[in-house]
Design a binder for these strands. Structure first.
Length: 264
DNA sequence: TAGTCTGTTAGACA
DNA sequence: CTGTCTAACAGACT
């Protein structure tokens, strides 16, 4: 799935496409994406105007008038687009908003989820309750408290209860920016490293949000997309900083890209 | 064919 | 109790 940046781009798009209006038609195309709710309940809910589109970590929160909240999680390939077609390829849930068109939750791999929560359920929704601070609200103290010396830094940062929204791509990119080895342990970081990390994370996301802003998020390797990243997906290429060779290796079970020249 | 993938979670293991 | 690994979810692509 998209990481924080891609979810944020969708959130901003929804502000334009949907806020202040309700759908006039709703189609549940694939019931598999619904969690703890039924197609009729979801269809009825989406007829209500969208009060506010919010984001927390990688979760998209659509607050409807009356208090219900639709919580989307895109997992690996989910996204929301706006177009003329009610049932495009990979469409799972569609709703028509006057003045904008068909908003469609598309999800090639069908791992994404849409949940309908009452105002009370939303207040105590567990995944959000235990989520760590957003990157722009992160402190060195909080981070160090949640990163024991023996733990891989990568594993700790991918843990959404430590910090919200960080994904596998952000790990490679931020480690490259800070010249950190992909398999560095938390105990190996200096005070300065921790400060740099807390400073760089929100800057990274802000830059990627800017570069990703468009009506339809294109994921790396997806047809028609270009790779906006410095090293993610670039093994074999030259490092733009030192000219070294970009390599990849498995760390914590997932691929990390890194420069063999400048990342100690 | 086997391996790969921007995510999350449960269960096995050391 | 801690941390890591694998599988599972599902589909397309190399």
């Amino acid at each position: 799935m998209p990481e924080l940046a891609e979810v944020e781009v969708v959130r901003r798009n929804l502000e334009r496409w949907w806020e202040g209006r309700g759908a006039s038609q709703v189609l549940v195309l694939d019931e598999k994406l619904l969690v703890d709710t039924t197609a009729p309940a979801m269809e009825e809910a989406l007829l209500r105007p969208l009060e506010k589109a919010d984001r927390r970590g990688k979760y998209l929160l659509c607050r409807l008038e009356g208090g219900q909240v639709v919580v989307f999680h895109f997992r690996m390939t989910g996204k929301i687009v706006c177009g003329d077609e009610a049932e495009p390829k990979y469409g799972r849930l569609s709703w028509f908003v006057d003045g904008s068109g068909w908003l469609v939750f598309k999800d090639q791999r069908r791992l994404g989820k849409a949940r309908l929560l009452s105002a009370e359920e939303f207040e105590t929704y567990e995944p959000l309750e235990r989520m760590g601070p957003e990157p722009d609200d992160l402190s060195v103290d909080h981070l160090r408290q949640n990163c024991s010396d023996r733990r891989l830094l990568k594993t700790a940062l991918l843990d959404q209860s430590v910090v919200a929204g960080v994904g596998n791509i952000a790990i490679s990119e931020v480690f490259w920016r800070l010249e950190l080895a992909p398999d560095v342990k938390c105990g190996q970081l200096s005070d300065e490293d921790w400060e740099n990390l807390v400073r760089e994370l929100p800057i990274y996301f802000e830059e990627i949000i800017k570069l990703s802003t468009s009506d339809e998020i294109k994921y790396v390797e997806e047809a028609g997309s270009s790779n906006i990243f410095q090293i993610y997906g670039r093994s074999g290429e030259e490092c733009s900083r030192c000219g070294g060779r970009i390599e990849k290796m498995k760390v914590g079970g997932r691929t990390s890209y890194f420069c063999g020249g400048c990342q100690r």
